[in-house]
Design a protein around this nucleic acid. Structure first.
Length: 221
DNA sequence: TATCATCAATGGCCAACCAA
DNA sequence: TTGGTTGGCCATTGATGATA
């Protein structure tokens, strides 16, 4: 199974729509989670039509911030369990009838509200009984190695992220290629890179799928 | 007292929206 | 299709608090 996450930072422009199509063609994911669509669920249905992917669920943006979507290709057995402005939680039935929980997550961009999105993850975690993979834009880093340039990350925020992962017994699945997933595109000393997008999984996922792999396909702007 | 970490306010940049 | 406007995200800056 191929699960892809993309923080598109707005899907309203023709250029972004083209980018999405390219990503779908180049990577052929079974399941794709898109954050920051910055559009309503209705508008996203039009995007689905243009991409010829009919299966999916979209969450309205709040004005021009947020907005989520989960799409999956024909033939996938996916049922959405619950969703909010910050996550879409789904159950995927694999070919061998095994069920795996796949959650797309979008951490609150506002620092002061970040903890509320961790609570969402905790609530989902409480109901998960099967193997679990969470992917998406966490808007958070775990340590200083995940940020290059600019100021150091806020220690309390990093610790909070670590605590949530410990509580839910989730481990970081490190990419085989690529590391930073976000750059600010500034020149010279102002250049900052961060690893805000990632996949994390329950310990059993890592144990039962020894060949699990993640990679950074491309850095968004 | 000096240094380090954090918080709140501010401004720049980027993308969506809208009218022509 | 294009150019101006609007809104949101994010880094910077200075102030404040904590600690050795």
């Amino acid at each position: 199974m191929k699960f892809m996450c993309w923080n598109c930072r707005g899907l309203g422009s023709p250029a972004k729509l083209w980018e999405l199509k390219q990503l779908l063609v180049a990577n052929n994911p079974d399941l794709i989670f898109i954050s920051e669509t910055k559009m309503s669920a209705n508008d996203f249905h039009r995007v689905q039509n243009k991409c010829r992917v009919q299966n999916g669920l979209a969450v309205n943006s709040e004005g021009r911030s947020g907005g989520l979507a989960l799409m999956w290709r024909d033939g996938m057995n996916v049922s959405v369990q619950n969703y909010s402005k910050h996550h879409i939680d789904s159950m995927v039935k694999l070919e061998n009838n095994k069920e795996i929980r796949v959650t797309g997550f979008y951490g609150h961009a506002n620092l002061t509200l970040r903890s509320s999105s961790w609570d969402i993850l905790r609530r989902v975690g409480d109901s998960v009984r099967e193997e679990w993979i969470v992917g998406g834009d966490f808007n958070a880093i775990l340590n200083d190695a995940e940020k290059e340039g600019g100021r150091r990350g806020v220690r309390a925020q990093m610790n909070e992220f670590k605590e949530v992962m410990d509580e839910l017994a989730l481990v970081d699945i490190k990419p085989d290629s690529g590391w930073f997933t976000w750059v600010n595109n500034r020149s010279g000393g102002g250049l900052i890179k961060e690893r805000t997008d990632r996949f994390i999984g329950s310990v059993s996922v890592v144990e039962n799928f020894p060949f699990i792999a993640t990679k950074v396909v491309r850095q968004t702007q």
